[in-house]
Design a protein around this nucleic acid. Structure first.
Length: 259
DNA sequence: ATGCCATTCTGTGAATGA
Protein backbone atom coordinates (compact mmCIF):
# COMPACT_ATOMS: atom_id res chain seq x y z
CA UNK A 1 0.00 0.00 0.00
CA UNK A 2 1.05 3.55 -0.65
CA UNK A 3 0.81 6.33 1.94
CA UNK A 4 1.49 9.95 1.04
CA UNK A 5 1.77 13.30 2.77
CA UNK A 6 1.29 16.69 1.14
CA UNK A 7 1.34 20.17 2.61
CA UNK A 8 -1.09 21.72 0.13
CA UNK A 9 -0.83 25.34 1.31
CA UNK A 10 -4.56 26.02 0.89
CA UNK A 11 -6.80 23.09 0.01
CA UNK A 12 -9.31 25.13 -1.99
CA UNK A 13 -6.85 27.29 -3.89
CA UNK A 14 -4.87 24.13 -4.57
CA UNK A 15 -7.77 21.85 -5.45
CA UNK A 16 -6.97 21.35 -9.18
CA UNK A 17 -3.36 20.47 -8.33
CA UNK A 18 -4.42 18.17 -5.50
CA UNK A 19 -6.97 16.29 -7.62
CA UNK A 20 -4.55 15.97 -10.54
CA UNK A 21 -1.87 14.54 -8.28
CA UNK A 22 -4.31 12.13 -6.56
CA UNK A 23 -5.59 10.84 -9.90
CA UNK A 24 -2.05 10.48 -11.21
CA UNK A 25 -0.55 8.61 -8.23
CA UNK A 26 -3.61 7.10 -6.46
CA UNK A 27 -2.11 6.66 -2.98
CA UNK A 28 -4.20 4.51 -0.62
CA UNK A 29 -3.91 6.91 2.31
CA UNK A 30 -3.10 10.63 2.14
CA UNK A 31 -2.26 13.09 4.90
CA UNK A 32 -2.81 16.76 4.07
CA UNK A 33 -1.61 19.81 5.95
CA UNK A 34 -2.22 23.56 5.76
CA UNK A 35 -5.80 23.28 4.56
CA UNK A 36 -6.23 26.99 5.39
CA UNK A 37 -9.98 26.44 5.35
CA UNK A 38 -12.67 26.40 8.02
CA UNK A 39 -14.27 23.04 8.80
CA UNK A 40 -17.29 23.65 6.54
CA UNK A 41 -15.21 24.77 3.55
CA UNK A 42 -13.29 21.52 3.05
CA UNK A 43 -13.90 20.29 -0.55
CA UNK A 44 -15.31 16.94 0.58
CA UNK A 45 -17.48 16.32 -2.47
CA UNK A 46 -14.72 16.90 -5.04
CA UNK A 47 -12.46 14.52 -3.14
CA UNK A 48 -15.21 11.94 -2.75
CA UNK A 49 -15.93 12.17 -6.48
CA UNK A 50 -12.47 10.81 -7.26
CA UNK A 51 -12.81 7.99 -4.76
CA UNK A 52 -11.54 9.20 -1.39
CA UNK A 53 -13.21 9.19 1.98
CA UNK A 54 -11.94 12.04 4.17
CA UNK A 55 -11.74 13.18 7.77
CA UNK A 56 -10.39 16.61 8.55
CA UNK A 57 -9.98 19.27 11.19
CA UNK A 58 -10.14 22.71 9.65
CA UNK A 59 -9.49 26.19 10.93
CA UNK A 60 -10.13 29.58 9.40
CA UNK A 61 -7.17 31.00 7.45
CA UNK A 62 -4.44 28.84 8.96
CA UNK A 63 -3.34 25.31 9.73
CA UNK A 64 -5.81 22.45 9.17
CA UNK A 65 -5.11 18.74 8.64
CA UNK A 66 -6.90 15.90 6.86
CA UNK A 67 -6.60 12.17 6.22
CA UNK A 68 -7.94 10.66 2.99
CA UNK A 69 -8.50 6.97 2.34
CA UNK A 70 -9.44 5.05 -0.77
CA UNK A 71 -10.58 2.04 1.22
CA UNK A 72 -13.05 4.27 3.04
CA UNK A 73 -12.85 2.34 6.28
CA UNK A 74 -11.35 4.95 8.54
CA UNK A 75 -11.87 5.31 12.27
CA UNK A 76 -10.90 8.66 13.71
CA UNK A 77 -8.95 8.27 16.95
CA UNK A 78 -8.34 11.96 17.84
CA UNK A 79 -8.27 15.37 16.22
CA UNK A 80 -6.17 17.28 18.74
CA UNK A 81 -2.71 16.66 20.10
CA UNK A 82 -3.07 15.79 23.79
CA UNK A 83 -1.44 17.85 26.50
CA UNK A 84 -2.73 21.43 26.21
CA UNK A 85 -6.46 22.22 26.12
CA UNK A 86 -5.57 25.88 25.49
CA UNK A 87 -3.95 25.04 22.16
CA UNK A 88 -6.66 25.54 19.53
CA UNK A 89 -4.52 25.17 16.39
CA UNK A 90 -5.67 22.41 14.04
CA UNK A 91 -2.37 20.62 13.70
CA UNK A 92 -2.99 16.95 14.42
CA UNK A 93 -5.45 14.25 13.40
CA UNK A 94 -5.11 10.51 13.88
CA UNK A 95 -7.04 7.56 12.49
CA UNK A 96 -7.03 3.81 12.19
CA UNK A 97 -7.12 2.90 8.53
CA UNK A 98 -6.19 -0.31 6.69
CA UNK A 99 -4.95 -1.80 9.99
CA UNK A 100 -2.54 1.06 10.54
CA UNK A 101 -2.53 3.94 12.98
CA UNK A 102 -1.90 7.06 10.91
CA UNK A 103 -1.01 10.33 12.64
CA UNK A 104 -1.10 13.41 10.41
CA UNK A 105 0.73 16.42 11.78
CA UNK A 106 1.51 20.02 10.95
CA UNK A 107 4.24 20.96 13.37
CA UNK A 108 4.56 24.69 14.13
CA UNK A 109 7.06 26.69 12.08
CA UNK A 110 8.59 28.55 15.06
CA UNK A 111 9.87 31.67 13.29
CA UNK A 112 10.84 34.33 14.10
CA UNK A 113 13.29 32.74 16.52
CA UNK A 114 13.99 33.14 19.32
CA UNK A 115 10.62 34.21 20.64
CA UNK A 116 7.17 32.98 21.64
CA UNK A 117 6.65 31.10 18.35
CA UNK A 118 9.81 29.08 18.89
CA UNK A 119 8.69 28.40 22.47
CA UNK A 120 5.33 27.17 21.15
CA UNK A 121 7.10 24.95 18.64
CA UNK A 122 9.41 23.39 21.23
CA UNK A 123 6.49 22.82 23.57
CA UNK A 124 4.47 21.26 20.73
CA UNK A 125 7.34 18.88 19.95
CA UNK A 126 7.48 17.95 23.63
CA UNK A 127 3.75 17.15 23.63
CA UNK A 128 4.07 15.28 20.34
CA UNK A 129 7.00 13.23 21.69
CA UNK A 130 4.97 12.33 24.77
CA UNK A 131 2.14 11.11 22.54
CA UNK A 132 4.54 9.31 20.19
CA UNK A 133 6.04 7.50 23.18
CA UNK A 134 2.63 5.91 23.81
CA UNK A 135 2.56 4.60 20.21
CA UNK A 136 6.12 3.57 19.41
CA UNK A 137 6.15 0.17 21.13
CA UNK A 138 2.64 -0.90 20.22
CA UNK A 139 2.12 -4.09 18.22
CA UNK A 140 -0.11 -2.07 15.92
CA UNK A 141 1.71 -0.53 12.93
CA UNK A 142 2.02 3.24 13.40
CA UNK A 143 2.94 5.86 10.78
CA UNK A 144 3.40 9.47 11.91
CA UNK A 145 3.67 11.72 8.89
CA UNK A 146 3.32 15.30 7.81
CA UNK A 147 5.08 18.64 7.76
CA UNK A 148 7.49 18.46 10.71
CA UNK A 149 9.05 21.85 9.95
CA UNK A 150 12.38 20.36 11.04
CA UNK A 151 15.50 20.01 8.88
CA UNK A 152 17.03 16.96 10.57
CA UNK A 153 20.67 17.43 9.47
CA UNK A 154 22.87 19.71 7.41
CA UNK A 155 22.56 17.18 4.60
CA UNK A 156 18.83 17.96 4.38
CA UNK A 157 19.24 21.58 3.26
CA UNK A 158 20.89 23.17 0.22
CA UNK A 159 23.02 25.58 2.25
CA UNK A 160 23.04 24.78 5.98
CA UNK A 161 25.04 27.84 7.06
CA UNK A 162 22.17 30.07 5.91
CA UNK A 163 19.74 28.28 8.22
CA UNK A 164 21.56 28.00 11.56
CA UNK A 165 19.43 30.66 13.27
CA UNK A 166 16.17 29.57 11.64
CA UNK A 167 13.53 27.77 13.70
CA UNK A 168 13.58 24.87 11.20
CA UNK A 169 17.26 24.15 11.83
CA UNK A 170 18.23 25.58 15.23
CA UNK A 171 20.18 23.10 17.37
CA UNK A 172 17.48 22.77 20.04
CA UNK A 173 14.87 21.97 17.38
CA UNK A 174 17.07 19.37 15.69
CA UNK A 175 17.91 17.90 19.08
CA UNK A 176 14.23 17.61 19.99
CA UNK A 177 13.51 15.87 16.68
CA UNK A 178 16.44 13.49 17.12
CA UNK A 179 15.27 12.60 20.61
CA UNK A 180 11.83 11.87 19.19
CA UNK A 181 13.25 9.57 16.51
CA UNK A 182 15.47 7.91 19.14
CA UNK A 183 12.34 6.59 20.88
CA UNK A 184 12.52 3.90 18.22
CA UNK A 185 11.14 5.46 15.06
CA UNK A 186 12.45 4.95 11.52
CA UNK A 187 12.84 8.02 9.29
CA UNK A 188 11.55 6.16 6.22
CA UNK A 189 12.90 8.45 3.50
CA UNK A 190 16.38 8.58 4.96
CA UNK A 191 16.37 4.86 5.76
CA UNK A 192 15.90 3.93 2.10
CA UNK A 193 17.98 6.79 0.66
CA UNK A 194 20.86 7.34 3.08
CA UNK A 195 23.15 9.01 0.55
CA UNK A 196 20.71 10.95 -1.61
CA UNK A 197 20.02 14.65 -1.50
CA UNK A 198 16.27 14.71 -0.96
CA UNK A 199 14.15 17.82 -0.56
CA UNK A 200 10.41 18.18 0.03
CA UNK A 201 10.06 21.98 0.09
CA UNK A 202 11.29 24.77 -2.15
CA UNK A 203 10.63 28.41 -1.31
CA UNK A 204 8.51 30.45 -3.72
CA UNK A 205 11.27 33.10 -3.56
CA UNK A 206 14.19 33.49 -5.93
CA UNK A 207 13.35 30.51 -8.13
CA UNK A 208 14.31 28.12 -5.33
CA UNK A 209 12.81 25.15 -7.18
CA UNK A 210 14.69 25.97 -10.37
CA UNK A 211 17.94 26.22 -8.39
CA UNK A 212 17.03 23.13 -6.31
CA UNK A 213 17.51 25.24 -3.19
CA UNK A 214 15.31 22.99 -1.06
CA UNK A 215 14.73 21.60 2.41
CA UNK A 216 13.72 18.15 3.65
CA UNK A 217 11.05 18.89 6.25
CA UNK A 218 8.17 16.49 5.45
CA UNK A 219 8.86 13.16 7.09
CA UNK A 220 7.53 9.66 7.71
CA UNK A 221 8.25 8.09 11.09
CA UNK A 222 7.50 4.35 11.35
CA UNK A 223 7.37 2.27 14.49
CA UNK A 224 9.04 -1.16 14.67
CA UNK A 225 5.77 -2.97 14.02
CA UNK A 226 5.70 -1.57 10.48
CA UNK A 227 9.27 -0.53 9.57
CA UNK A 228 10.07 -4.03 8.27
CA UNK A 229 7.35 -3.62 5.65
CA UNK A 230 8.93 -0.51 4.12
CA UNK A 231 9.60 -1.19 0.43
CA UNK A 232 9.94 2.20 -1.26
CA UNK A 233 9.89 5.91 -0.50
CA UNK A 234 10.15 9.06 -2.56
CA UNK A 235 9.16 12.62 -3.36
CA UNK A 236 6.87 13.60 -6.25
CA UNK A 237 9.21 16.48 -7.11
CA UNK A 238 7.63 17.22 -10.44
CA UNK A 239 4.39 18.31 -8.76
CA UNK A 240 6.29 21.28 -7.29
CA UNK A 241 6.88 22.43 -10.87
CA UNK A 242 3.18 22.50 -11.80
CA UNK A 243 1.29 25.73 -12.31
CA UNK A 244 -0.16 27.05 -9.01
CA UNK A 245 1.79 24.46 -7.00
CA UNK A 246 2.22 24.37 -3.25
CA UNK A 247 5.72 25.22 -2.02
CA UNK A 248 5.90 21.62 -0.74
CA UNK A 249 5.97 18.49 -2.89
CA UNK A 250 4.08 15.30 -2.01
CA UNK A 251 6.11 12.62 -0.23
CA UNK A 252 5.19 8.93 -0.15
CA UNK A 253 6.12 5.48 1.09
CA UNK A 254 5.12 2.00 -0.02
CA UNK A 255 4.54 -0.77 2.50
CA UNK A 256 4.43 -4.50 1.84
CA UNK A 257 1.16 -6.15 2.76
CA UNK A 258 0.87 -7.36 6.35
CA UNK A 259 1.76 -11.02 6.83
C1' DA B 1 19.30 42.72 7.18
C1' DT B 2 15.74 42.77 3.81
C1' DG B 3 12.95 41.31 0.17
C1' DC B 4 12.12 38.01 -2.80
C1' DC B 5 6.35 34.90 -3.51
C1' DA B 6 1.95 33.07 -2.20
C1' DT B 7 -2.00 32.08 0.83
C1' DT B 8 -6.20 33.72 3.53
C1' DC B 9 -9.80 37.18 4.84
C1' DT B 10 -14.41 40.74 9.78
C1' DG B 11 -9.58 42.15 2.95
C1' DT B 12 -7.84 46.40 -0.76
C1' DG B 13 -3.08 45.71 3.39
C1' DA B 14 -1.97 42.53 7.32
C1' DA B 15 -0.63 38.24 9.14
C1' DT B 16 1.58 34.07 8.14
C1' DG B 17 4.62 30.98 6.19
C1' DA B 18 9.77 28.44 6.05
Amino acid sequence: MKIATYNVNGVNGRLPVLLRWLEETTPDVVCLQELKAPQEKFPEQAIRDIGYHAIWHGQKSWNGVAILSRSGQMKEVRRVLPGDPEDLHSRYIEAEVDKLVVGCLYLPNGNPAPGPKLDYKLNWIKRFAAHAQTLVNQDMPVVLTGDYNVIPTGFDVYKPERWVDDALFRPEVREAFHQLVAQGWTDAIRKLHPEDKIYTFWDYFRDAYGRDAGLRIDHFLLNAAVSGRLRAAGVDRHVRGWEKSSDHAPVWIELANAK
